[in-house]
């Protein structure tokens, strides 16, 4: 598994909300073309880890490297521009903007994108019919597709997905898995926080288990310690 070259290399990450420290000394990696799961109970710190990567919370680390570049001191927009696409857990679609306008905001003016509208709508055919729809009047699943599409048009090398199946109908989860698998086949890397084992097992190679802001376990996705306390929720859903 570790033979792939490293894309994201994090060592000793700590993060705070105000004065409260939430993450303690986290270390993890994501290889090129690899999909890594971040597993843990509610409040374990998965979302915070992702926000820390994006520079959306106060953070400090011994090493924070993406594609060989130090991202520890970069403001959010520069992290994004280096090639990290972020899909937050509540999706954060711009509700007043239409689907087309939401997509447009993800694009970098002046930079050519692999992700033309045609390519996006091929991946998510359902979105094609919704182009003029306001983001606020879409279902949870549709918003999730749009959120992924919105980060894709920025040409990321790594997609960070925070609970992509939360509040999404099973049929749409299936479609989402299909889309993500196609992305992975084309070389995309992923960091996915999930409580839905179906999605994780279909896509991810490796997993990290978090508890109370610390890493507790890591290994291949098949070796996730079934029934162990630290992943109780994960295995219960299974």
């Amino acid at each position: 598994m570790r033979s792939v070259p490293t894309l994201l290399d994090i060592e000793g990450l700590a993060a705070w909300y105000g004065e409260a420290q939430i993450l303690f000394d986290l270390s993890f990696t994501v290889g090129r073309g690899e999909a890594v799961a971040l597993v843990g109970r509610n409040g374990a710190g998965k979302s915070t880890t992702m926000k820390a990567l994006m520079g959306l919370v106060r953070r400090r680390a011994r090493r924070m490297a993406f594609a060989g570049r130090d991202i520890a001191a970069l403001p959010t927009h520069e992290v994004a521009r280096l090639g990290i696409g972020y899909v937050p857990e509540d999706r954060r679609i711009f509700t007043d903007l239409t689907v087309a306008e939401n997509l447009d905001l993800g694009r970098r003016p002046g930079a050519a994108s692999l992700w033309t509208d045609a390519a996006i709508f091929e991946l998510f055919p359902h979105l094609a019919g919704l182009r003029a729809r306001a983001g606020g009047s879409m279902s949870g699943g549709e918003q999730q597709m749009l959120a992924v599409a919105r980060s894709l048009v920025g040409n990321p090398e790594l997609l960070i997905l925070d609970e992509p199946s939360e509040g999404v109908a099973p049929i749409i989860v299936e479609q989402m898995i299909g889309a993500l698998l196609r992305l992975k086949a084309s070389g995309m890397s992923f960091l996915i926080s999930e409580q839905n084992s179906l999605l994780c097992e279909a896509i991810c190679n490796r997993a990290y288990v978090m508890e109370q802001g610390e890493m507790r376990w890591q290994g291949g996705i098949d070796a996730l310690p079934a029934g162990s306390d630290s992943v109780g929720l994960f295995t219960k859903l299974k």
Binding site: T95, D96, L97, L105, R108, S151
Partner: peptide
């Protein structure tokens, strides 16, 4: 305009605008 869309988007959620690679400052 894109500037206008950015204004509308940032009025709702500045952080997300930054996370899409837009220079907030």
């Amino acid at each position: 305009t894109r500037f206008g869309r950015l204004i509308r988007a940032a009025t709702q959620d500045r952080e997300m605008v930054a996370a899409l690679g837009i220079n907030e400052a």
